[in-house]
Design a protein around this nucleic acid. Structure first.
Lengths: 253, 253
DNA sequence: AAATAATGATTGAAAATGATTGCTTTTCTA
DNA sequence: TAGAAAAGCAATCATTTTCAATCATTATTT
């Protein structure tokens, strides 16, 4: 069989993954004529390059949810709920404030609505930095390791960077809001960053949509009472439960 | 006669790549009647000109979406020089290295050529971060204020961020290389970052094109001997003058 | 004719490959 | 549900392919 170049195989493999969610190694050895070893190596390389995800028996498509740089406030990526929460959060920012903005799409939605003048913003979100600078807001990055999956700076580097600052307000995103577990997130590294930011803010806010309530996800960040929750709209029943534990600001009521 | 033949081969090679994603060397020797050596030289030349990408066993189409957004202003002679310098610089990076990459277009040109595996890169360049992460390289930001004009993190925040790390190699961009003034740059804030990175690297390199030699621009970074200079091509006379003060690596000679 | 540039052959080094081995994960089956 | 069988895996090794560097030769320019 005619030899097939490494790059060609890589191309073939990625093409398979455009069509299907998962492709088996067997299928790839058949399609390329290469040995199993070679295909395995290819998969390792491509995974290292972030172009696919290895699974037992083959490889899976990687969901590349890259945040578009051309985002504007009409963007359909944000639900009405997120935009409402963002608008409400932005209205809380006053002139000359120094604020922290956490990485994540919920907090990203607040940036377009910022009206206050002469503010300083610190963030661990890569896309947040770009949006802030484009808007002419003085922006600082925390530094630290840039995670591809979430486009966020994290780890000790980010915590270390935060320790230089003090905030009037901090706007955090979380994955779970739970009566007993408090605010939670799956990644301990990111939790450390959020915790540090929360500690260093005069007034911390947590932005969350309805789906986050009564959820808990592994890593504890802080107790409910340590921040004010900003949300779009939540069911009456949920509201009743949580408003005894902390303040809730509901944008659409 | 021969120069024409060279041009013809180049034309043939590029035509193959219009049809297909990848072309093997074998196919090109068959099609042109030239020896393998000659084809290899052609491929090297065409890659330097940015018209294709070499892969093991042949050459691949260069995807046109990979155009540097910040690199399209300069004359093409200059960017070729930068690419050559970038290629040379990238070849110095070894597996498992921990490197610093300074902000700026010259150092940006280095990133596409990085081959070494398992490296850690720290940078104060916003675009650099994006490129590194897209390439699957573990990337750290220094943090600090993000300057809109240069897309670089600077100030005490960036210096502070750097102080967490130690590098095998550092790749710096500078604005002036002067026998007496040493390496210089216009912005004192950026100079502080460069100085810190240089101090923290086992082996510092300075990337510069010919126009930077015998120039000096306000803020002193370090003396000439404190880094190795990587450049595309400089006049014989300039080389003679500077190679007594420090090491110079010339990419195109 | 001398200098310069292009070419092709050679060679040691580097990269890619396929087979093998011992280990881990998954699946089957009793 | 435990334990065996099967499938999948990373690591390693020998082999093959490809590569860059070098040198001698040929063609082109000065």
């Amino acid at each position: 069989m005619q030899p097939v170049l490494t790059e060609e195989r890589h191309f073939t493999i990625l093409n398979f993954l455009k069509e299907k969610e998962i492709v088996k190694i067997q299928k790839l050895t058949d399609a390329t004529g290469a040995s199993e070893s070679t295909i395995r190596r290819d998969l390792t390389d491509l995974e290292d390059a972030g172009l696919l995800r290895r699974v037992h028996g083959g490889a899976a498509k990687v969901s590349r949810k890259r945040i578009e740089p051309t985002m504007n406030e009409k963007s359909s990526r944000f639900s009405e709920e997120k935009r409402a929460a963002g608008r409400l959060a932005a209205s809380l920012i006053e002139n000359d404030d120094c604020i922290f903005i956490d990485a994540g799409t919920t907090t990203l939605a607040l940036i377009p609505y910022i009206q206050a003048k002469n503010i300083i913003a610190v963030t661990n979100g890569f896309d947040h930095l770009r949006l802030l600078v484009e808007k002419g807001i003085q922006a600082y990055g925390t530094g630290g390791m840039l995670k591809q999956s979430t486009q966020a700076f994290t780890g000790t580097g980010a915590v270390h960077g935060l320790q230089q600052y003090w905030f009037d307000k901090a706007f955090l995103g979380v994955n779970g809001i739970h009566l007993k577990a408090g605010y939670t997130t799956p990644d301990p590294e990111e939790a450390a960053v959020k915790r540090e930011a929360l500690k260093r803010a005069q007034q911390p806010y947590v932005l969350a949509d309805a789906s986050k309530f009564q959820e808990s996800t592994f890593t504890h960040i802080a107790d409910l009472k340590e921040a004010v929750i900003i949300t779009g709209k939540i069911p009456e029943k949920t509201r009743k439960i949580f408003e005894q534990a902390t303040d809730i600001k509901e944008a659409l009521s």
